[in-house]
Amino acid sequence: MGDKKDNPKQQTFEERLSQAQLKVQGTPEAKEPDSASNVAFRMGVDLVAGTGVGAFMGYWFDIWFDTKPLFLIALLILGFVAGVRNVVRLARQVQDADEADEQ
């Protein structure tokens, strides 16, 4: 590897290009634009979507297996848990990004 780096002609154009870009931009790491309202909106949608998907799946499982209302109740609760998990995951992402910015 050592002599490969010394002689730019032996590297592919790709490699040289990405090295040059790293020099200019630093290590690129794009994230979602996270303005406060964007994050809040996303949390709301995630929470409702989890519950909604759970309810939807439960409703159809009940119809297929003829077990009304067992799956509806169970998956509604699990869907809510999934929604909360999504929100917690998003909140952690935002927090990590904030802490990375401060350092």
Partner: peptide
């Protein structure tokens, strides 16, 4: 696994509702 599966299935909803709303 079930929770993660539901969470995975919320992706298209979260994606489309944001643009739509």
């Amino acid at each position: 696994v079930l929770i993660e599966l539901i969470s995975y299935c919320t992706r298209p909803i979260s994606l489309s509702v944001r643009l739509f709303a």
